[in-house]
Write a protein that binds this DNA or RNA. Sequence first.
DNA 1: ACACTGTATGATCACATAGTAATATAAGGA
DNA 2: TCCTTATATTACTATGTGATCATACAGTGT
Lengths: 110, 110
Amino acid sequence: MSKQLPPEILELIADRFRILAEPARLRILNTLMLGERTVSDLVQDTGLNQANVSKHLGVLRASGFVDRRKEGLYAFYSIADPSVEVLCEIMCGRLEVQAHEQSAILAGSS
Amino acid sequence: MSKQLPPEILELIADRFRILAEPARLRILNTLMLGERTVSDLVQDTGLNQANVSKHLGVLRASGFVDRRKEGLYAFYSIADPSVEVLCEIMCGRLEVQAHEQSAILAGSS
DNA sequence: ACACTGTATGATCACATAGTAATATAAGGA
DNA sequence: TCCTTATATTACTATGTGATCATACAGTGT
């Protein structure tokens, strides 16, 4: 536990965190958790424009978070890295903890 | 599982990922996993300059990842959010999986 | 061959932020 | 009080990248 990691590894980890540090990409991933979707589906779902969605999908694919399957004119994207969901759940859980602490502080100071 | 999250929540999650998307901050956190450290300790350990370390610590503290305890001239920082370690481990595990896949591909194509 | 649709790819702009130097603040000692 | 040390902050620059527009590319049908 808590072993010291060399700077090169920490850079790679930071790179992966950076991919997820974007609301638009999280929206896309969150939709993909429901199952495979085409680019057009995601454009509809997120309200982002097509170029933007395509670019985010490119980033997500290059970093191995999603997979692509081409079929005719369509490109079907899907989650390739199941850890995404776990990561978001942890972050979410932490948000709830902090929200609790804040309301506790507010309640205490009143 | 895999519930749809509203955009506001995803923005908060993205904010937290962004905090961790920095090699320098991960270096600091990784050192703090060994225990409480002063700013000077961290400057020594990371090789970053003092202003830079202070600024990163400020960001980490504002987002609740670390705590501060002042004692005389010194400021002792420590991990406040234990989930950091888990998050890094997951990312690390995923890096290993990808490394394996890549070497498998290379071996197969030879 | 042409037209149409879905997706990907530049080029550009705007903005956020990491790093750094200089300086400010705060605490302790002579 | 003055000096020194530890930490925080401010101002600035440079770099990275998200959003957008326009356009290119690929597959399908006529």
